[in-house]
């Protein structure tokens, strides 16, 4: 299939890009790496009048150290994020998650910011962003604003980024020394997550000092499993504690029923996978497949 016709601009600065979006109006669409957008255009599920390609905005690529946080440019490819030593050291959960995203070719082209703004509830990067308390830096005509990840994802395929705005970078507070794991469950390797769980755990002297557990595809946006987190904090990192805590995983979720799984099965998976994700993050051996 071939996309419908559109006008194309490839601005050389964020300001130019914002101008192009303003001129394009509601029917303009930002093109990052294109790995989510292109299939949609090819199937003609979307037909923007203008496509604003950010490929020339080199300032949006790369990772930098900002003291207590690392900052990932929104146009940094998945591949480059996984290879970055800063991310590996301070946000290991992101690296582990990206390794499960799609396939190598798509990771070569797809961008960190693009996945977040696409906001597919089955998309894998949303949960770690929430788990690590990321802050989204959004540029608009009136300047830049910062939105915490917990308030960024609004609904299916909907974020706080307005049609005339661009996500420029993502600040991730350093989680140096945290254990982490992304437990993804799907039917074939390249399929989207049926359910997945992002877990990050900070241990102190054999007990869990802090825990972040966020669920993928258990609702229209990533869902933080606060019941699980509360049940973990201050407890020893044992199988029993984790298993008991994981029973809270499906609380407050609203999973959908689709061709791969019914809602009740997703709730069950959320509990099982949460147990496995937290155990792995805490460095315990994990049973099961």
């Amino acid at each position: 299939m071939i996309p419908a016709s559109f006008d194309y601009v490839a601005p050389s600065s964020v300001e130019e890009a914002l101008q192009a979006l303003a001129q394009g109006g509601e029917e303009a669409k930002v093109l990052g790496g294109g790995q989510s957008l292109l299939p949609v255009l090819r199937m003609r599920l979307a037909a923007p009048t203008t496509v604003v390609d950010l490929r020339k905005l080199t300032e949006l690529r790369g990772v930098r150290d900002e003291g207590d946080a690392i900052v990932i440019g929104s146009m940094t490819t998945h591949h480059d994020v996984t290879r970055d030593p800063l991310v590996a050291e301070h946000a290991e959960l992101v690296v582990k998650t990206i390794r499960t995203v799609a396939d190598p070719q798509i990771r070569h082209r797809g961008t960190f910011g693009g996945s977040l703004v696409h906001a597919d509830p089955a998309g894998d990067l949303l949960a770690p962003a929430v788990a690590l308390g990321a802050e989204m830096v959004i540029a608009g005509s009136s300047g830049r604003r910062t939105v915490p990840a917990s308030e960024f994802f609004l609904d299916f395929f909907t974020t706080a980024v307005a049609p005339d705005e661009i996500l420029v970078e993502v600040r991730i507070p350093k989680h140096t020394g945290w254990g982490s794991h992304y437990e993804k469950f799907n039917r074939v390797a390249q399929a989207w997550s049926i359910v997945a769980v992002a877990a990050a755990v900070r241990s102190e002297g054999g007990s869990i000092a802090e825990a972040r557990v966020v669920l993928t595809n258990m609702g229209s946006t990533p869902i933080r499993a606060t019941g699980v987190e509360q049940a973990l904090v201050g407890q020893p990192a044992s199988d029993e504690v984790i298993r008991a805590a994981a029973q809270h995983a499906a609380e407050g979720t609203s999973p959908m029923t689709d061709g791969n799984a019914d809602g009740d099965y997703r709730e069950h998976l959320a509990r099982v996978l949460t147990g496995r994700a937290v155990a792995a993050a805490a460095g315990l051996a994990v049973q099961g497949g």
């Binding site: 029923t257 689709d258 061709g259 791969n260 799984a261 019914d262 809602g263 009740d264 099965y265 069950h268």
Partner: peptide
Amino acid sequence: WRAINAAQGRAKSVSEGYTDTAAGG
């Protein structure tokens, strides 16, 4: 999973609001 549950007689009744689909169930 459902086969195991059904066999063990501990299949939870499908709560309201979930509809079966042929692909999944």
